[in-house]
Each structure stands twice: as C-alpha cells, then as structure tokens.
C-alpha cells in the first residue's frame, strides 16, 4: 500500500496536472473531437451534485463488484483444481487438455450471445462471461506450474518417504501458489475488462451500463465519471488481490 502511494510523488503529479490542464483547454476551446466532451470542472461538479448523493450510482458499483467477485472466485474455484488435475494426472490431461486448448482461444466476449441464450437470467450470463476470462488464465497458469515443478523437489520428498498425499499437499500445492497468484493478478484485470463490456451489451445495471447510458443520452460527464469509476474499481480490486497474494506466500516477504 505504502509503495503504491509513494509512486505518486511530485514528479508524477506534474504529468497528471499537465493532463488536466490540456484537457481543460481542449474542452473549453471546443477543439476538433471535443464538441461533446466536458471539461474536468464540469465532470467534478456533476459528480459532486448528481452522483455522490445518488443511490443508483453507488448501486452500479455494488452490482459490478458483485459480478466481478463471483466470476473471479468461481474461476479460481474451478480453475485451480482443473489446472492441478491437468498437471498431475496423465490420463486426465490426455483426455481433457485438447478441449481446454480448443475453447481457450475464444475471447470471453464471443461467449456473450451463447451465454444469453443458455442462462435463464442476464445476471447469470454476465457472471458466466466474467468467469470465462479468468478461468482459462488460472487453468493454464496452474497447469504450467505443476509441470514446471523442479524434479529435485519431488525426488527429495520421495526419498524421505513421503506418501503421494503428503507430496501433493506439502510440495505440489505450495509450488503452484506463485502461479495461482499470477493467475489472480491477470484474472482480476480480465474480469473487469469483460464485465464492463458485457454490461454495455447485456445489462441494465453496473458501471459499464452507466457509462454506456451516458453515451446513449449524450451526457459526456456521465461517460467520464463512469470511466473513472471503472478505473478506480479495478485499482481497488487489484489492491485486494495483491494483499491476498502476500498472505498466500509468507516466504516471499
């Protein structure tokens, strides 16, 4: 946490200030392309007056966060065991891995229409799409990690008389934790990517929807407040995931 904030020292503030000033100038001068784009002050005003006290706005946060949380956690819940099975069971790998490789290149958003057709509610279909993105990432990461375990680590355990169960629990599982952490970092980013796009296409709530409605109603301030909110939400999730990762790997402290 401290490290993340330290980066925002005065040098960083220079570029941020320059960005805001340039944006203000271009918006005030109605530079080409800026006809419908409000200046930062207008965005700030709109946020303060319209969104900060609005229950609907904060509900968008809650809705998007819920979808990301469910999609992300389900991806871990199914992805980690599947990756472990693929990595440790030869027969299982031979049967299932080709299917994984076939489905993996399909971008999560390509699942949107099928997902809407399949799931009874749009809520379920959005959670499903949010699940697909991080799911394949975690599967592949864990699978590769199991295969990359140093053979000496396994040999030593075998020499010392460890049972298969002990080797799995005390050697294989901890060996893949760094890969799970990487999968989580990448996965949470993908989950946000996907949920926003899915909300724009197929939902009537959430931060993605809020942003899209701003566009549909030609309300530039809403579009920008939506974008900033999404950025903050993603950043917040990253902090939570980073905290969880540190807890998972006490030996890297």
């Amino acid at each position: 946490m401290k490290r993340l904030f330290r980066r925002l020292d005065w040098r960083g503030a220079v570029s941020i200030a320059a960005f805001v000033i340039l944006w203000t100038l271009l918006a005030r001068l109605k530079a080409p392309g800026f006809a419908e784009i409000p200046d930062p002050a207008a965005v700030g005003r709109a946020f303060w007056q319209k969104y900060l006290p609005s229950a609907a706005y904060w509900n968008s946060w809650v809705v998007s966060f819920e979808r990301v949380t469910y999609g992300f956690l389900l991806a871990q819940l199914f992805g980690i065991p599947l990756g472990l099975l693929l990595g440790t069971r030869k027969l299982f790998n031979e049967v299932v891995f080709p299917l994984v490789e076939l489905l993996r290149p399909i971008p999560p958003l390509a699942w949107v229409p099928l997902s809407i057709l399949f799931w009874p509610t749009s809520e379920l279909s959005i959670v499903f799409i949010t699940f697909i993105g991080p799911f394949f990432i975690i599967v592949i990461n864990v699978h590769d990690a199991v295969r990359g375990i140093r053979k000496e680590h396994l040999w030593l355990a075998r020499s010392l008389g460890a049972s298969r169960e002990t080797i799995f629990r005390r050697i294989i599982l901890p060996s893949v934790i760094p890969a799970i952490a990487v999968g989580m970092t990448l996965g949470i980013a993908v989950a946000w990517n996907v949920v926003i796009a899915a909300e724009m296409i197929a939902s009537d709530a959430g931060l993605g929807r809020l942003t899209w409605e701003g566009y549909v109603s030609h309300t530039g301030t809403t579009v920008i407040i939506g974008m900033i909110s999404i950025g903050l939400a993603g950043y917040l999730s990253t902090l939570i995931v980073a905290w969880a990762e540190r807890r998972m790997m006490p030996w890297q402290r």
Binding site: E152, H153, R158, S159, G161, S175, W251
Partner: peptide, 20 residues
C-alpha cells in the same frame, strides 16, 4: 528399485523447499 531414506542426496542446486 526405488528412492529411500537410506540413501540421501544433496543436489548441485539447493533443493530445499523454499515455502517451508
């Protein structure tokens, strides 16, 4: 026929489990 605790090897590169 198999690995066993009667013959133990110290490897060229450390094989300590770094998570323990």
């Amino acid at each position: 026929t198999a690995a066993g605790p009667d013959r133990l090897m110290v490897f060229q590169e450390t094989a300590l489990w770094h998570w323990m």
